[in-house]
Design a protein around this nucleic acid. Sequence first.
DNA 1: AGCGATTTAATCGTGCACGATTTAATGTGA
DNA 2: TCACATTAAATCGTGCACGATTAAATCGCT
Lengths: 150, 150
Amino acid sequence: MNSHKYELQVEDFLCFGLYSTSNAMNKIYIPLLKGLNLTYAQYLVMTVLWQGDALLVKEIGQRLHLESNTLTPLLKRLEAAGLIERRRSEEDERKVLIWLTEAGRELQEQARCVPEEVMKATGLEERDIMELNSKLQTLRQALDRSRQEG
Amino acid sequence: MNSHKYELQVEDFLCFGLYSTSNAMNKIYIPLLKGLNLTYAQYLVMTVLWQGDALLVKEIGQRLHLESNTLTPLLKRLEAAGLIERRRSEEDERKVLIWLTEAGRELQEQARCVPEEVMKATGLEERDIMELNSKLQTLRQALDRSRQEG
DNA sequence: AGCGATTTAATCGTGCACGATTTAATGTGA
DNA sequence: TCACATTAAATCGTGCACGATTAAATCGCT
């Protein structure tokens, strides 16, 4: 056993607040998305595509801050589920375009109630959510910048 | 392509702010912990143990909001690395007590500079970090409560 | 034209997180 | 006492995230 003195407690780490709250949020989504047969990451990808499809893997990655090592297998699962199509660009064979299928488009209706359920679970009002989200985005940008420099 | 109208953008989701910022934070830790041969989750477990060891798997889980399905394999890796010992309690054979080894204790010194490096990367001052962390803890509690009820 | 640099996606291996289940030890009530 | 519930940890299968690397197409420059 240590004498605690001035040791930092894990609960005081901002990283831990982020980590544990992000995990908790994920757990909120799991039952909400179960009926749609989507994981949380898949739901984020679908949300991006519902805003506008015919996107490159790289473009989805830029929106979600993910790369092909994460996205390629995830997109293959969405394709296997019949929600998207992956098609090589004909002008540039390096590029893979992601299109929604009709089923993928229809899923948007079923998913419409999800954000409200999540908002209820947070116990926060919209303006508090926006404020917190804004702080998180700023923090993420700082972390990305620091990583780019260092 | 959709006409966007009033569609929610993924960037407006609080869950996405949490998710992407938590991922970004993890990426800050990876190079900092590389020299210690620790992953981020392992570092959290070690931090808990540095505050006081001889903990049950369940007790570590309560601190980190994780369960044995995540912790057991992680603890086995820490044991294989020589940083901890796992010992069955003699009074109650269901329980497994986690002890730091001498190497595990010594690692704390090498890890001492990590929090400051992370703080620099956030670009935030201590009081802003504490304020944000406090909001996140409150949110996590709300999410946990909602999950317990629902 | 041709060759090295760049870009895009895919692949590989590791280690979480999670829900669900199992195993084994202990507790509890008729 | 002895069945049944509860508890603690482990196990199992799935799907991310990540760094690192590879493969193939295209670009750019001479």
